[in-house]
Amino acid sequence: MPANPFNGFTDYGIGIGLRVPHYRHILAEHPVVDWFEIISENFMVDGGRPLEVLDQILEQYSVVQHGVAMYFGSADRLNREHLKRLKRLVKRTGTPWLSDHLCWGSVDGRYTHDLLPMPYTFAAAKVTAERIRQARDFLEVPICVENVSSYAEYHVSEMTEWEFLSEVVEQADCGILLDVNNIYVSAQNHGFDPYAYLDNIPHGRVGQIHIAGHSKFEKYILDTHDHPVLDPVWEMYAHVIKKTGPTATLLEWDDRIPSFEEVHREALKARRFLPSDNKGKRTS
């Protein structure tokens, strides 16, 4: 199952997010890494240092694009300028698939710059799926949507989050970027069984997996990406790998970022849960 239409029939291994504090090390030392995930919006610029760094990375590494501002779940029309910039970047990186979040974040052209949870209704699923289809048709690259962590649920919801995710990806015929940490965080915040989530999604559509750390507060958990991956999240990762097969996996570490080696070492812990013949495998 690792190579499927939703990740461009690739078999990527374990990657890490490309982050500014690591640029110097990566460009000077050329460490062996299966692949890097970039935040698309950081490189949807017209010129300068960001694109210079990206081109240097692309000379040696495979890169997958991950977006934070497409807002598939917003009721606004898709922004053509955004899509055009994104498509230019897709051509530059040759990303075999791209991902963004199953959320909303803008309305009437005003942006919250947040990944806000959707109202889980059939109408919202239909709108979201339609926008994913439109984006994919324009960008001409497979799309995976990522489940977000959340701290609120709405009265209007008509189904569970995993039912909503399944509804959207089936209607849009797109892939899933399954963020295991986000499921754990949301499960703790809302009191659902994270394994019910993992067991009740279309596993054949999982094109990529995210893992990350989080922070515990008195009454809730925040998805802060500033810690190593916690044991319950690794256990969920092991569970989902049994369902999906070895799948492109990426560690996110966005705040209090330690050395490149430490981040990479943390990511490679995922190998413990992969079948032995997949531990070093990567084709594209």
Binding site: A75, W104, V107, R110, P119, A123
Partner: peptide
């Protein structure tokens, strides 16, 4: 808001939420 059963209702829902977030 009692329902989100259309794109228009989704937009209205998001307007209300954004109005609170921007406070």
């Amino acid at each position: 808001m009692s329902s989100v059963r259309s794109q228009a209702e989704l937009k209205e829902f998001q307007r209300q939420m954004a109005g609170l977030l921007f406070q």
